[in-house]
Amino acid sequence: MSFINPTFRHPELPVNELGYTKKDYEGTISTLCAGCGHDSISGSIIRAVHELSIPPHQIAKLSGIGCSSKTPAYFLGNSHGFNAVHGRMPSVATGAAMANRDLIYLGVSGDGDTASIGMGQFTHAIRRNLNMVYIVMNNGCYGLTKGQDSATADEGSASKKGDPNPFSSIDLCATALNLGATFVSRSFSGDKEQLIPLIKAAISHRGFALVDVVSPCVTFNNNAASTKSYEFVREHAEATGTVDFVPMREEIKAHYEPGTSTEVTMHDGSVLHLRKLEEGFDPFDRASAMSAIARHREAGKVMTGLVYLDRTAPDLHEVLDTVHRPLNTLSESDLCPGNHVLENINASLR
């Protein structure tokens, strides 16, 4: 078994605007099971961040407990990281985001860490529209403890050694929509062409961005009776449309026939091109998104793509009107502005 990645890379790897290759965004070698969908998501994160030319030190990756939450060791080895208590990643992310608003917060969680033990934390981070990317590596089972059904396992789905699941599942995208999430998307670990632009869009979104990624557990939940297996998802995934992400600094190279593409400008100036959108589906309308999810579920399909986007809602910093600089850049004179300021405050209260 290899524990160290070879140092050699392809000699003609593309470099991004910072002069970095993909290698500068990699982590240590994965210790997850061979073929785990999570590794593909790690690979997609590496490519998305590299292609966005984000300096690695401007990202903080946070996670809880579980197979999914081990993955930050396997990507962005030069970024900040925090491995929190089970289900408590959103609290840590909230604290960090409040203290330093300049970093990009990349939360990585699993279905257990999010939909069971961390459900309370997850919902409140959404409710507050915390400015973070929240990636759920969703395999419908507890892989780290031998594959018991999780709260996102579909009713009737059975894992490798298990009986059909008698409970209805929690749909994280539907939950997030209900709670007022401002960016909701779903993808599949085996579809990088869709996942990478979605991660990029989530990063460029200001506010809470959920990326729920169906990620098969090859060891416990990749069998014929499972609805989270590679084969099932490939056969039943239905994209609501195609997402092309064009970063702010890049020229738009592709040309779209008028009427076939919806252009969305994100907060940082990047542009999303939504193409081939399903008829009657409007990703800017919460009710339309919710009904689309319900419609797909009833048809036995896994709806993927950008589900919902709201660029106008204020994020937590705006709501709280916090200071515009990271706390660690505030000097003593900023924090103790002097007696005259105190006197002004006192005078205003008299």
Binding site: R9, H10, I29, D39, S40, G190, P216
Partner: peptide, 15 residues
């Protein structure tokens, strides 16, 4: 092959 992409992700030289 089940097309899980694991080999694509791990290959150090993107072969």
């Amino acid at each position: 092959c089940i097309e899980c992409d694991a080999c694509v992700d791990i290959c150090p030289t993107d072969c």
